[in-house]
């Protein structure tokens, strides 16, 4: 997912920088945050800062019609259900923030185990039990793209590791405790049954005082 979102941004920036990156190397740093909930949905935040010249051209492209970004993302990420897009920009600090939500991002394998796809171009590093740091670099023409992503798994993750799925694709596999409903009636039945037997037994042992 990160690769595809980053790929789309690369295309946009490539367009932006084609005009003035013929002679000098441009470096673009893209920052992402993926927050995964306990049913495999994600909230994605993409934050981008720009130089004065980059900002001017960005405003002429996606700044004029950010909904095009939404359309292209929906094309690129058709494997998920995207919704709740928000776009904001801070002209004073030349920064824009795009957020959206995606359903069906992690695949449930059963018994609390989930798989989050990590493309082979991405370098993952575990920061804590439920936080991973993902990086990717790419060069297009004279533009060097550096992508950094923080992946936050649900707080109650028990274990997470990089492995491969049944198709040989690299995934981040994590396990969250399975919520189990207590069999309340069964417990009550057992407790009351035991107590009943104990009381009936006791009725023969403890005779009433006459």
């Amino acid at each position: 997912m990160m690769k595809k979102v980053a790929g789309l941004m690369t295309v946009i920036f490539l367009y932006v920088f084609t005009a003035f990156s013929q002679t000098q190397m441009e470096k673009i740093k893209m920052e992402f945050e993926f927050k995964i909930d306990d049913v495999g949905n994600a909230e994605v935040v993409y934050k981008q800062s720009a130089t004065a010249m980059q900002w001017k051209i960005l405003n002429q492209t996606i700044g004029q019609n950010p909904s095009l970004l939404k359309r292209d993302l929906m094309h690129q990420l058709s494997a998920y259900e995207l919704y709740d897009f928000k776009f904001s920009k801070d002209d004073m600090n030349r920064t824009f923030i795009l957020t959206f939500k995606a359903k069906g991002v992690s695949k449930y394998k059963g018994n609390g185990v989930w798989d989050f796809k990590i493309e082979k171009e991405i370098s993952p590093r575990q920061v804590s039990k439920n936080v991973w740091y993902l990086t990717m670099t790419n060069t297009e023409g004279n533009v060097l793209y550096e992508m950094y992503a923080t992946l936050k798994l649900p707080d109650n993750v028990e274990k997470s590791e990089i492995t491969t799925d049944e198709f040989g694709k690299r995934v981040l596999r994590y396990k969250v405790p399975v919520k189990k409903e207590l069999p309340v009636f069964l417990i009550l039945g057992a407790v009351s049954g035991v107590l009943g037997i104990v009381l009936i037994g006791a009725s023969f042992v403890f005779k009433p005082k006459s």
């Binding site: 009550l188 407790v191 009351s192 009943g196 009725s203």
Partner: peptide
């Protein structure tokens, strides 16, 4: 025989049967 204990025990056994029934039917 302690009738109070016996009565309570029987009630609890009946309740136990009801709870088991609820577990399997509801």
């Amino acid at each position: 025989m302690n009738k109070k204990f016996l009565f309570s025990g029987v009630v609890l056994i009946i309740l136990s049967v009801v709870f088991f029934g609820l577990h399997f039917f509801i």
